[in-house]
Simulated assay, not measured.
Amino acid sequence: MRDDADTPESTTGLDPNTQRRAVRRRYARIATEESSCCASSSCGGDDDNDDLNRQLGYSAADDESVAEGANLGLGCGNPNALAALQPGETVLDLGSGAGFDCFLAAREVGETGRVVGVDMTPEMVEKARENVEKNDAHNVAFRLGEIEHLPVADGTVDVIISNCVVNLSPDKQQVFDEAHRVLRPGGRLAISDVVLTARLPSDVHADPESVASCVAGASPIADLETMLSTAGFEQITIVPREASEQFIREWDDARDVSDYVVSATIEGRKPEQNVS
Rank of each mutant, 00 (worst) to 15 (best):
S202R: 13
V165W: 07
A216S: 15
I191C: 04
A206N: 01
P201Q: 07
A206Y: 00
D193C: 11
L200I: 08
G187C: 02
R199Q: 13
K172D: 08
H180C: 07
G217I: 10
V165G: 05
A190H: 10
P185D: 03
R199G: 11
L196R: 15
V215C: 15
H205L: 13
G187W: 02
A179F: 02
L189I: 06
C214Y: 14
T197I: 15
A216Q: 06
G186C: 01
A216V: 06
S192A: 15
V159K: 11
N167E: 14
A190P: 03
A212N: 04
I160K: 02
A216H: 02
E209I: 09
R184P: 00
R181V: 11
L168C: 11
S192L: 10
H205P: 00
Q174E: 13
V159C: 07
A216G: 04
L189A: 01
V215M: 12
Q174F: 00
T197F: 01
S162A: 15
A179H: 05
R188K: 05
V194R: 12
Q174H: 14
L183E: 02
E209Q: 14
V194H: 08
G217E: 10
A190Y: 04
V194Q: 11
V182T: 04
S192D: 15
V215Y: 07
V211N: 04
P208W: 01
V182N: 03
S202D: 15
V182S: 01
S162M: 12
D203C: 00
V182P: 01
A179V: 07
E178A: 15
V195S: 06
S210K: 12
P185N: 01
S162N: 05
E178W: 05
C164E: 12
C164S: 15
D207Y: 05
A206T: 08
P170W: 06
K172P: 09
I161G: 03
P201L: 09
N163P: 08
S213W: 11
V195Q: 04
S213V: 14
I161Y: 08
L168Q: 10
L168I: 10
Q173N: 08
V211L: 07
K172T: 05
P208Q: 04
D171K: 01
D203N: 13
Q173V: 14
C214V: 13
V159Q: 09
V204F: 10
P201V: 05
D171T: 09
Q174D: 14
C164Q: 11
E178I: 09
S202N: 09
N167I: 13
D207T: 02
A206V: 00
I160C: 03
G187N: 03
H205I: 09
S192Q: 15
I160N: 01
R184A: 12
V175E: 08
A218H: 11
S213G: 06
A198T: 10
S192E: 14
E209S: 14
